[in-house]
Each structure stands twice: as structure tokens, then as C-alpha cells.
Amino acid sequence: MVAASSSDTAFPRAGGAVTSILKKPSVIPGFGLTLGFTLTYLGLIVLLPLAALVVKAGGLGWFGFWNAVFTPRVWAAFQVSFGLSLVGAAINAVFGFVVAWVLVRYSFPGKRLVDALVDLPFALPTAVAGIALSALYAPNGWVGKPLNELFGFKVAFTPIGIAIALTFVGLPFVVRTVQPILQDLPPEEEEAAVSLGATRGQTFWRVVFPAVLPALVTGFALSFARGVGEYGSVIFIAGNMPGLTEILPLLIVIKLEQYDYAGAAAVGTAMLLVSFVMLLILNILQHWMRSRHAR
């Protein structure tokens, strides 16, 4: 990286050495205050309540926990939730990247409106999204009807419907993580590549893509993690058939409906563990990619 901007050179200095606990204690103040506040707030709002969940599940004991979580029904729902979230996140990774690319690199009429529209899934209540999507994709809906009549293709109340809902809720994560990185990519790098004789394709795959990849992975991971837990928008379009279109959060609701708080907490804890490990791996991976790229 010949012509890196100052921010790029500043980064490895701030992130390079992890040998001591603090990097620059003498210059920048507020470490104790901010870390203390962050940990306290995190502890009170996130960790304490989540601990209540784990304690509740722990009340079952190992055997009870195992029995609550490792049943064919829960396993099937695990596959549905995680599998279809993966599909949704993959769709988002591809198309979200294209959307971010188009929004950053090209100009066309109505671009700002399109840019604003991307955040809609954050803002629209998930239940409304679910109702709207099931109305659209039902066999008598605007989109579902032509699909069904022309191709005999059913979307709502099938796994495809769930994937569509999960794509909807996860889309902004990919676009909004990739977009700023694309924007900040110094044009000098691409210019240098081209001046050295690289084709457009080579420039993209060797220069642009590696720079954007960490952000794309983050977006993918967030979109995926969000999808696994999603309830409101999926429940209307899923069909909820046991073993086929039954998602994990619905199983939790079903357990609660039987006043089985501990069982619900057990499934919730299992979901939480899987999500946590996945996010942690991705954050470490991203940290690693970032420091490699910055070098």
C-alpha cells in the first residue's frame, strides 16, 4: 500500500501492539471512566438479564437441559432457523454489496431516496413487515399470484417465504457496513493498480474486494445473527409447520405457552451460545483481516 492516507498509517500504530494492557495511558484520558461506564451499563442492561436466562435454564441441570434442547423437533427448528438465516444473509451479502456499490460509485436520479429506503427494515415494525410480506407473497397477493399461476411456485407459507422475510430484516446490515468502507477507499490504490497495467476485473478482485471483505463479513454476520432470532416478521409468512417451517423462536413461544419457562430458557440459552460463539469468531476474524489489510 504505497499511497495510503493518514488514517491508514495511524491505524496500525493504535492497533499493533497488544503486549501491554494499555497502549497509551499517558496521552489520552478517560480510559477508566469510559471502560468503567461501558462495562457497568453492559452488565446491567445486557449481561445481568441474560444471566437470569442462563440461571433459569441451569435450574434444569445438565440432563434436563440436554433433554430440552436435543430433541428432533428442536433440531429441525435449529436447521430451519440457522439454514434459512444463512440463505437470507447470503442473498444480502451479494445484493447488498451490489446496492452499496451502486450507491457509492454511480449516480442516477432518485439515488438519495433509494439510499434512505435501505434503512426501512430497521424502522418498520417487524410484525407490519410480516403482514405486508405475507399479503404480497400469499397465493392471492400482488407477487404471489403471478408466481403461483405462471410457475406453480409457492412462496408464502413455505421455507422460501421465511428466507424472504429474513432477507428483508437483514438487508440494511450489509449495505450499511459496506457503504462507508467503499466510500473511504482511497482512489489512489485503484489508480495505482490501473497504472501498473491491471485490468478492471483484476483491480476489483485484487484491490477493492479485499479492502471491503472485512466489512462484508461483518454485515453478513450481523444479518445472519439477526435472522436467527427474528420472530415478528417470520411468523406471519412461515406457515409454522413442525419440522418444516417451524423456527426456533416459535419453539420458545410454544414452550412458554405450556408454562415451561425453564425449557424455553434452555432453548434460548442454546441459541445465545451459538450466536455468541459465531459473532466472536467473526469479530476476531475481522480484526485479523483488518490488521493484515492495514499493513
Binding site: A138, P139, N140, A156, F157, I235, G239, N240
Partner: peptide, 20 residues
């Protein structure tokens, strides 16, 4: 049964509005 809604009113909507 092609769809198991979570509540009675959900089923009514599926039957009357979605025409399933």
C-alpha cells in the same frame, strides 16, 4: 392443514384474506 397460524385470528385472516 397447510398452515398453522399461532392464533385463532391469524387463521381467520389466512382463510378469508389470503384465501387459503
Amino acid at each position: 392443514v397447510p398452515v398453522l397460524d399461532s392464533g385463532a385470528r391469524g387463521s381467520t385472516v389466512t382463510f378469508t384474506q389470503r384465501e387459503l
